[in-house]
């Protein structure tokens, strides 16, 4: 039996197909809650694709950070806005979607012809199988990248303080 695609490639196609479909759903669907749900599914399948790249830690952090925290915040805000009346999210009908589609398709054609076609030949995996394990990531993060890490933590702190200030009614 000699199929043109291997089982692994079919697996990737299935995962990537669902992820791409959900990405389109985020943009196309009118109801923001449904957009958010599409995004959640997209992030979930992106996490699976990270697993197929042998990056277990980042895949699980993808689920933990994006679907577990960020998207819940999104849903929370959408619902808070929904409490104020249903009709505030009415998309106006104009020429923008068509224009956007044209621009998107042309951009995809341009970049893929220049960048992705040459990369289709690259199929040699150079990274070690354990390159995504928590041990190796921790070691790199706390040796070579310790300053960026600290700056990121300060950024998160600033983010917390900023959002608290914004959320307070009277400062």
């Amino acid at each position: 039996m000699n199929l043109p695609v291997t089982g692994e490639q079919l697996t990737f196609m299935a995962l990537a197909g669902i992820a791409a479909l959900m990405a389109v759903g985020v943009v196309v669907l009118n109801n923001p809650v449904r957009s958010a749900m599409c995004l959640v599914v997209n992030f979930f399948f992106l996490a699976f694709i990270y697993f197929t790249l042998n990056a277990q830690l980042l895949g699980i952090s993808q689920i933990l950070v994006y679907t577990g925290a960020i998207m819940v915040l999104f849903l929370f805000v959408v619902m808070l806005l929904n409490l104020g009346g249903k009709q505030i999210f009415k998309e106006r009908r104009d020429f923008k979607p068509i224009l956007g589609m044209v621009v998107g398709v042309s951009l995809f054609g341009m970049i893929s012809s220049q960048l992705i076609l040459p990369m289709l030949k690259v199929d040699q995996i150079r990274a070690d199988n354990a390159y995504g394990a928590p041990q190796s990531i921790g070691k790199t993060l706390f040796t070579n990248y310790v300053w960026p890490f600290e700056i990121a933590s300060v950024l998160l702190l600033v983010g917390i303080v900023g959002s608290i200030l914004l959320a307070k009614r009277r400062v």
């Binding site: 809650v33 749900m37 959640v40 277990q56 830690l57 699980i60 952090s61 689920i63 933990l64 679907t67 577990g68 925290a69 819940v72 849903l75 929370f76 619902m79 394990a133 928590p134 041990q135």
Partner: peptide, 21 residues
């Protein structure tokens, strides 16, 4: 897997969706 605790935290954080949706 070597991310067992993180897996547990990630999946338990998905429990929100049933309630919210």
């Amino acid at each position: 897997v070597d991310i067992g605790v993180l897996y547990f935290l990630a999946i338990s954080s998905l429990g929100v969706y049933g309630v919210v949706l």
